[in-house]
């Protein structure tokens, strides 16, 4: 399995990673090697096997519907890159 430079660009876009153009070929090669290694999985016989999402055979525990958090906006926003009037700022969102 090998990834083309275009596929790498497409994946990088999906993952919102800016790649410099000189990195793309390099990544394409490395990622192809990784996918080759991962390709060994196709040898396994898994027709009757159910997928395992989790090591624990447990079910979800439920939380009581109670308010357990207080307002900590100041602490949380003290580590934010840009805030104004209690809002997080980002470049204008256009829909």
């Amino acid at each position: 399995m090998s990834l083309s430079a275009d596929q790498v660009r497409q994946v990088a876009h999906l993952a919102r990673l800016e790649l410099k153009s000189e990195q793309v070929e390099h990544y394409a090669r490395q990622l192809s090697n990784i996918l080759d290694m991962v390709g060994q999985l196709s040898q396994a016989q898994t027709a009757e096997v159910s997928p395992m999402a989790h090591p624990l055979d447990m079910v979800q525990r439920l939380r009581p519907d109670a308010i357990a958090e207080e307002n900590r906006r100041e602490a949380f926003q003290s580590i934010a890159p840009a805030v104004q009037d209690g809002l997080y700022l980002v470049p204008k969102v256009i829909e």
Binding site: S42, A44, T46, V49, P51, A53
Partner: peptide, 12 residues
């Protein structure tokens, strides 16, 4: 081909 397959092999 990848994720679901890997989850099955994980079970094995």
């Amino acid at each position: 081909a990848y994720y679901l397959k890997a989850q099955k092999v994980r079970r094995l």
